[in-house]
Amino acid sequence: MKVNVKVNGQNKVFNIEPGDYLLDTLRKENYLSVKKGCDNSSCGVCTVLFDGKPIKSCSLLTAKTEGHEVTTVEGIQKEADKLSDYFGAEGADQCGYCTPGMALSVHALKEENSNPSDEEIKEYLTGNLCRCTGYQSQHIAIRNYLEDK
């Protein structure tokens, strides 16, 4: 089946099987910033924005994106560039595998709640796992980014 979807502002037509998940479609279509980590909606490295809201692309059928907008980190380069400066300052990136998804979640959080508490930041990002950093450096980097420090 064919799906019409806007990816990073561009209209695309994807030829898919009804059971295809968005993660696999995007990687097949060369959106390689979207990573594969767990196949079952837990780790968050496949996070993309669906109509501006973070979702796990491994758990959304591509068929459901018909007429919707999908944003990968390729679509928020300016924001990711800036956020990465804050991550770099805290040594919060390490292996980097989770950071594109993290950037998207942080971007969405900023849009939704420009002044979140520490608890709200943690809550919003619980679905983005990281095995390298121990989280605290990321948390500081994200807070500084949101406060534009």
Binding site: S41, S42, G44, T47, F50, K53, P54, I55, K56, S59, L60, S105, E123, Y124, L125, T126, G127, N128
Partner: peptide, 12 residues
């Protein structure tokens, strides 16, 4: 609801 997985799952 806020205790269910993370925001990305609750968005779906």
């Amino acid at each position: 609801l806020s205790k269910i997985m993370g925001v990305p799952i609750r968005n779906v």
